[in-house]
């Protein structure tokens, strides 16, 4: 089975005055269907840059990005034209839920479907089903301001899942949550990977959920310094 996403030897260099910042320096990662991948590392280690490149939001300075075996990004690629591709294939979840404040929970989720031209009624019904599945059946008509942080994050996950994307990218999704809610969110990702067969890349600082990951990439100074599998989470937890 080919990888959902495969980033090959990606480099991302920024020019800051006379200095060249090597945000990413020859990184190769991949995620297969049903895999929950952790990306860990200190601040500035290149985790978020990796996510931008994998999410087709930034082209790499060097290297290539393959989606289900097909090259979708390379240096100088015009990623704006991949907006429709991103809409159908990649879901995003961030530290902040980034919900549209003037829309209710169900409208936030349904918006992702309407953007993809799903008819209004069908979008509404599917959004409701997703929210119910994520335990938010009683909150569908609430606006984000009326939801707790954990609930907002679950709505954001429902929105990311709305188009049933094969790839889900999450950048510090639990950073603003307490340990119990963090665990719930990570377990949710695990379930989504298992049940829906989606590939999920999660950037996180939190070592308490490493047992849920199939594989963890440890980043430092723009490079992968360690890779570990689910069978040995304790070693990474000690990091």
């Amino acid at each position: 089975m080919s990888a959902t996403i495969h980033v090959e030897n990606a480099r991302k260099h920024y020019q800051s005055g006379d200095t060249t910042v090597r945000a990413l320096d020859g990184v190769t990662i991949e995620a297969r269907p049903g895999e929950l991948i952790g990306i860990m590392g200190a601040s500035g280690s290149g985790k978020s840059t990796m996510l931008l490149i994998a999410g087709l939001l930034e082209p790499p300075t060097e290297g290539e990005v393959f989606f289900r075996g097909e090259r979708v990004s390379c240096p100088g690629a015009d990623l704006d034209r991949l907006r429709a591709f991103r809409r159908r294939n990649i879901g995003f979840v961030f530290q902040k839920a980034n919900l549209i404040p003037f829309l209710s929970a169900i409208e936030n989720v349904a918006l992702a479907l309407k953007i993809d031209d799903v008819p209004k009624r069908a979008a509404h019904d599917y959004a409701e089903a997703l929210l119910v599945e994520l335990g938010l059946g009683h909150r569908v008509d609430n606006r984000p301001a009326r939801l707790s942080g954990g609930e907002q994050q679950r709505v954001a996950i429902a929105r990311a899942l709305a188009n049933d994307p094969p790839l889900l990218l999450a950048d510090e999704p639990t950073a603003a949550l307490d340990s119990v809610r963090s665990r719930h969110v990570m377990e949710l990702f695990r379930t989504i990977a298992d049940v829906r067969g989606a590939s999920i890349l999660v950037v996180t600082h939190d070592p308490r959920s490493v047992d849920l990951f199939d594989r963890v990439y440890e980043f430092s100074d723009g490079k992968i310094v360690a890779t570990s599998r689910r069978t040995a989470p304790e070693a990474l937890a000690a990091h």
Binding site: L57, R83, A84, F85, R86, R87, R88, F92, N98, I100, P101, L111, A112, I115, D116, R159
Partner: peptide
Amino acid sequence: LHQIAMLKLMGARNSL
């Protein structure tokens, strides 16, 4: 702007 960026991230067309 943040919401517009989010809409673009979600793949919204410019017309929206």
